[in-house]
Amino acid sequence: MDPIIANFIEENIVPKFNYWIYVILMMIGLYAMITKNNLIKKLIGMAIFQTAIILFYVSIGVKEDGGIPIISHHGPDHHQETEAHSEAGSENLKHNIIDKDKYANPLPHVLMLTAIVVGVSTLGLALAISQRIHKSFGTLEEDEILNKLRPGGHD
């Protein structure tokens, strides 16, 4: 690739690309929730909206040369350190300096982990309600349900 184009991508596209896609996904979900007629389609839109927000949170926690948020004392950086302190026992472990730039930010991960599991339980509840609606009205299309609910409306 041409170095100028590569440089342009590095400086202008890469730092913001994640956020653009999260906005696009969120808008796809919002559009589906507003305009789709079928209740299952609305729920798929809701799930897409939710994953877009989770994507935003996780993107914020990324660090440039950060690994996964699990502390490793067996990596190449820590090996000598652990060897040197091995006689002193675990008492010295807490004095090891942990470089916080080497680990991704764990806080957004924690918040989003529970959000995913709660998301599936709300999705299950919503699916149960749409099954109940199908039992009462015989359809999952929004306009037909509204037609039947209207006084004097039939079919």
């Binding site: 299952i40 729920l43 798929i44 799930a47 994953t51 989770i54 996780v58 993107s59 926690g61 990324v62 660090k63 950060g66 690994g67 996964i68 948020p69 699990i70 991704a104 957004p108 991960h109 989003m112 982990l113 995913i116 599991v117 998301g119 599936v120 999705l123 299950g124 699916l127 749409s130 099954q131 199908h134 999952l140």
Partner: peptide
């Protein structure tokens, strides 16, 4: 992105259970 726990949860929940319950609903409606 390094969020292994979130990825693990999504693989089990999003791709596994939520697809299954959605298909279960579609079969009964």
């Amino acid at each position: 992105m390094g969020a292994v726990d979130v990825a693990f949860t999504e693989a089990a929940v999003g791709a596994g259970v939520s697809t299954v319950i959605m298909i279960a609903t579609i079969f009964s409606t």
